[in-house]
Amino acid sequence: MSELLDFKLRNEKQLKNFRKHIEQELLKIDGALEHVKDEMLSALIKDIESEKQSISIKMKEKWNVFDSGTFIQLGANSITAMNAVQSGTNLSVAGAALTIVNTALSTMKKVRNNKKEILSGPIAYAFLVNKKWSNT
């Protein structure tokens, strides 16, 4: 039970967005003509499944932040680090190492931002639930 509570607390924002979205959609369905309610409900379920698949694909692609500029920067920083190691001065080695660390941290920040953006939609909670409990 505590695992479920921890999950809900960790994903509280997504849960609120999901609940709000579902309530709005259900209110639309409730206000619709009787003969289209089943069709609207089926469409909602289909849209949720489609969005979960889309989120899943985007989560796999969140690492696509390595562009040619990143590789060039890493290469240049690596060359600087190699030269620093060969020169043997501690200050130049530390400086070169910091540039590599800075590039790595910048890239990780891009990945985190991608993940945050992907998980900001109203169906993100459904994706997170599916991911958490379909593997357990």
Rank of each mutant, 00 (worst) to 15 (best):
L15M: 13
M59G: 02
K58T: 00
Q86A: 14
K20R: 11
T80S: 12
L44K: 06
I22W: 03
I118D: 00
M82N: 12
V65H: 06
Q24V: 01
L33R: 06
S120V: 08
Q24P: 01
N17I: 09
A84Y: 02
L27K: 15
L74I: 15
V85A: 13
V65L: 07
D67T: 10
A43S: 15
G88N: 10
V36S: 10
V101P: 00
Q24F: 02
L119T: 01
I118S: 03
E61M: 12
A96E: 01
H35W: 02
L44R: 09
V101W: 00
K20E: 09
I57E: 13
N83P: 04
D67F: 08
Q24C: 03
K110H: 11
Q73C: 06
L9S: 09
E49W: 13
K13A: 14
Q14Y: 05
R19T: 12
R19P: 04
A104N: 13
T136C: 10
N90S: 13
T107C: 01
L41W: 04
P122Y: 01
N77F: 11
H35G: 02
K20H: 08
L105P: 00
K131Y: 08
A81E: 09
L26Q: 10
N130H: 12
D38I: 06
R10Y: 13
L74V: 14
V111D: 03
K131N: 12
L44H: 11
A97T: 15
L119A: 02
K131R: 09
S42R: 15
E25V: 04
A76S: 14
S78W: 03
H21I: 00
H35N: 08
T89I: 00
K16F: 11
V93R: 07
A43K: 15
L128C: 08
A96N: 04
K20G: 00
E23G: 04
E3R: 08
N77P: 08
G69W: 04
L91N: 13
S56G: 14
K46E: 15
N83Y: 07
H35C: 03
A32G: 12
W133T: 04
M59H: 05
D47Q: 14
K110V: 05
I22A: 04
S56F: 11
M59P: 03
S106Q: 12
H21M: 10
M108Y: 03
E25A: 04
S78Q: 09
K115S: 04
M108S: 00
N17D: 14
K58W: 04
S87I: 05
Q86G: 08
D6P: 02
V65P: 02
D47C: 12
S106F: 13
A81V: 09
M82E: 13
D6R: 04
T70G: 01
K58Y: 05
A81T: 11
V101C: 00
E117C: 01
M59Q: 05
V111A: 00
L26M: 12
D6Y: 10
I72V: 10
K116C: 00
T107D: 01
A104R: 13
Q53Y: 15
K115F: 00
K46D: 15
S134G: 07
I79D: 06
K62T: 02
V111P: 01
K13H: 09
L105Q: 06
E51H: 11
T103H: 11
V85F: 11
E3P: 07
I29L: 07
L15I: 09
G88S: 11
W133A: 07
I48D: 06
S54C: 10
E117G: 07
K20A: 05
N114Y: 01
N135M: 05
K115N: 02
S2G: 09
A126F: 05
E117Y: 00
F127N: 02
S106L: 10
